[in-house]
């Protein structure tokens, strides 16, 4: 077992464990923090798999921007409190999750190409950027449009007061 492989396993365990912790936390702040940890590990994994640009972006966008946004909302709105936990609500999704793990595992292991090894290689930021804007310049523009629309939508929702449920029920 090579050192790189060891690192992979460590990161994998870290990702799965912290994600599992994140989804089960009662306190939302804790959950988000575990998730940040998971994203950091994912960023390391991306670096390991030869994608330094993505690793940086993972930290900046996911762990940085998105998770901070989550934290802001949680802090301003509800202060991390989610109320009592109902264990029964986990039964059905967990069973489904188990079933999908089993069947996906079965499918994966029955594939003849499953044992192909991943040889270490790196896509340098320069070549990655060139490739991206050579080949995918139009999708990038479209995605930027999408982000702009999302920005407008978020602004609209944030400034608009809306009606209360009571009002809606009266109208009905």
């Amino acid at each position: 077992m090579t050192a790189l492989r060891m690192v992979f396993y460590l990161l994998a365990i870290l990702i799965v464990a912290s994600t599992a912790m994140a989804i089960t936390r009662k306190n939302l702040v804790h959950a988000v923090l575990y998730l940040v940890q998971s994203f950091f590990a994912t960023a390391a994994l991306f670096y390991l798999l030869g994608a330094p640009v993505l690793a940086a972006l993972e930290i900046i966008i996911y762990a940085g921007a998105i998770m901070v946004l989550f934290l802001f909302i949680i802090m301003t709105l509800i202060g991390g409190y989610t109320g009592s936990r109902n264990h029964r609500q986990w039964i059905f999704p967990s069973l489904l999750g188990l079933a999908s793990i089993v069947s996906a595992g079965v499918l994966l292991f029955s594939s003849p190409a499953s044992e192909t090894g991943l040889i270490a290689a790196t896509a340098s930021p320069a070549s990655f950027g060139r490739y991206l804007f050579d080949k995918y310049w139009l999708p990038i523009e479209i995605v930027s449009l999408l982000l702009f629309v999302a920005l407008v939508g978020a602004l609209y929702l944030g400034t608009h007061k809306g009606k209360s449920v009571a009002q809606i029920e009266v109208e009905q």
Partner: peptide
């Protein structure tokens, strides 16, 4: 929302299991 998400998940799992079964 949770019911609908659960159903969505169920559909996904059904597809996956169906795929496995047909494969085998």
């Amino acid at each position: 929302l949770s019911t609908y998400l659960g159903m969505l998940f169920l559909g996904f799992v059904a597809l996956l299991v169906g795929l496995t079964v047909t494969f085998y």
